[in-house]
Amino acid sequence: MAGTDAALLLLADSRLPAGGHAHSGGVEPAVAAGAVTDVADLTVFLRGRLATAGLVAAALAAAACAHAAGPADAFDALDAEADARTPSPAQRRAARAQGRSLLRAARATWAHPALDALAGTAPHHPVALGAATAAAGGGPGDAASIAAFTGVTGGASAAVRLLGLDPLAVNRAVAGLAADIDAVAARAADAARGPWAELPAASAPVLDLYAELHAGADLRLFES
């Protein structure tokens, strides 16, 4: 396998100035509910999130990336598919806030017709990520990998901050999910070759509940 392009590594880097650090992927409300207290709990939580919300995000990102490679036209229909897979209003707001931030960072970094087509909108994060991946020279498989990977690492680093967990132990736990992340990304990229209507829509009822509880919480460190 050839090396990964540095441009794509930028998109997976937690230092990307796209506001990702403000979101915990549901880890903060899970901590507040007592469902995540240590590294073992965190691993259980992240594995479930990866196979549900993570898979859906990766598939949408791959589809957006494939769409970006064609003639630059509207992403509205794909964004509507993201809405239909995100019943929680709090999760839709978080996805659009992150999408807007990522789009801003991507447009400041790369020029691409797909980024122009999204200009002035607040797309769902995976839609923005797919377009940004195309702009950075990547393909749908890259977009799916970055979406699946950053979904896990974002939650993991949030847990380190919230619970004061040992960063080395958390890193080992994330590494233990690497094969799962790759499998989810591969499934997502495969699904993105089919019609948008049939993209994965795996739900996680507890994540949805947490997202709404968190939106109504008085005291919180993360936006979502």
Partner: peptide, 12 residues
């Protein structure tokens, strides 16, 4: 997969 649906993120 029970490791997925039994996750505290999904159905606990």
């Amino acid at each position: 997969d029970p490791a997925v649906y039994g996750s505290t993120a999904v159905l606990a």
